[in-house]
Computed example of a mutant assay.
Amino acid sequence: MTRLLYDLCGIDEDLRFSPYCWRVKYALAHKGLDYQTQPWHFTDKDAIAFSGQGKVPVLVDGDETVTDSYEIFRYLDRVYPDRPLLGGQPAEARARFFKFYAERNLAPAVIKTVMMDLYNAVAPQDRAYFRETREKAFGRTLEEVHAPSRGLSQLDLALEPLRARFGEADFVDGDEPAGADYLLFGTFMWARCVSAADLVSNADPVHGWVERMLDLYDGLGRKAQRSIDSVGAAEPESP
């Protein structure tokens, strides 16, 4: 049976922007595993009700259904042990640090930078849901969250540990990429897919890592659809 990944889509079905789904796509490519994607919308909860929850990614692998990007990493390492993503227990514990670092340090800075670009990349039928749920979570309007200057300044500080790392190696995990790289890079793919904003300058060591990540696996990230290329991108919906 073909593996199936339920993958968040936006203003057209080829625009896939979930950072968590991007983590999984890179993990599957790392393992050399074939899969197909099923485009999914925020409001299409019934389509993944079988998974027992309402978020993507959802990976269906034969009789197995796995949710949550990190749990999918663990599943892939257990079932397909060649080319580990996380490694043994000490390595996995370190990888969890990068999971939290991406979600609690990088993502908040990125969301300030691209919030309204993200809103306009969301499928029209999902925008009311997106606005309601995100404004409830942030306790303010999307327009108030959107603060690119503050976001970029916050991101600049958050990236300092990575700059030091890329002075030593090409990837977070060393000479070759693995789980930590994919856990972090999902956030960069999220921003790249929904926005034309430059998160880092060309002279930044992090930029070199981003370029290397984009070229991996026959240009998996570089070939991805972006909202600036999507149908309807030139006519964003007004709030």
Rank of each mutant, 00 (worst) to 15 (best):
V56A: 12
L85H: 03
E135T: 08
K99F: 02
S149M: 12
T43N: 10
L152T: 11
R127Q: 15
Q154L: 06
E64H: 15
R74P: 03
S230R: 03
D82S: 14
L33A: 06
V122Q: 08
E64D: 14
D14C: 08
V110T: 10
K99G: 00
L220F: 07
R212I: 11
K55Y: 11
D156W: 05
L4G: 01
A158T: 09
R83P: 03
A180P: 06
A123T: 12
T37S: 07
A233H: 14
E132N: 10
V24C: 00
R140S: 13
R83W: 04
F73Y: 07
D7E: 10
Y80S: 07
V122G: 02
F97E: 08
S238D: 05
R3P: 01
A93E: 06
D7M: 05
P90D: 10
S51N: 11
L220M: 09
G174K: 09
R134T: 12
S201H: 15
Q154C: 03
N105P: 01
M115K: 03
A107Q: 10
V194D: 02
G167Q: 12
G139H: 09
F100T: 14
G62T: 12
V206W: 00
L8T: 02
A109Q: 06
A47K: 15
N120L: 05
A178R: 08
T113H: 04
Y80L: 06
F185K: 01
V24S: 00
C193M: 11
E143S: 12
D68M: 03
G219N: 09
D12Y: 02
L85V: 05
T65F: 10
L28R: 00
T37I: 08
V114Y: 01
A158M: 09
P239M: 08
